[in-house]
Amino acid sequence: MIIKAQHAMLSAWFKSMTSLGFLVLLQACTTTTIDEFRQGATGITSEDSVVILGRRQGAAYETRAQFVECVGERMARGSNAINVIPEQQFVDAMFPWFEPRTAPLRSEDLQALMAQPMVTEIMSGFGVRYIVWLDGQTETTSRMGSISCAVGPGGGGCFGFGSWEDDSSFEARVWDVSSATAVGTISADATGQSYMPAVFVPIPLIARVEANACSSLADQLKQFVQGG
């Protein structure tokens, strides 16, 4: 009888914890908003390539290389995959024209840059049709709660609850290398609340905010450069 009662209690506790887990899991989702502003016609052939570069001129923050890589990888796979040149390979080959202090900031600067015969030659070698400038960052705000952990001779465990909000805001400016003009801007804003309940062990329920911003932005960019 005692064993049955303990089993029933454990089962009820497990069910309630599972329900709580699912409840929190539902809460730990991300909201992503994509905005597109088109300035000119686009289109790409199988011989053309796209290079995605991160803006790193600002003192306050710089676009993470991992995010740039994520967008590039996503655009280069799946149906209608696009040739994407790795950022570092392109920046090294174009040295010193695309360094943080020397990179063109406006499409008019690209026109001046394309007047350099060596630059034009390297661009043609890569088959670059579009340059995509990524600018943005992910910030963590609204940290709340606390988790306490203790270890004793009989074992250890944690108890508590923590939560925080991640906010990703990225902008992609697309330049057409053939005409040296800006053809559009796509912005991606993603927010998500992450939770960390701890009952003996911490259970991280992380909102994949930056990953969602990356995939949404990459999918939209892919359609954009293909003229869709």
């Binding site: 040295f95 010193p96 360094e99 943080p100 202090r101 020397t102």
Partner: peptide, 10 residues
């Protein structure tokens, strides 16, 4: 140093 190289060469 890379920053120096780009700024110096240009």
């Amino acid at each position: 140093l890379r920053d120096l190289a780009s700024n110096f060469s240009l």
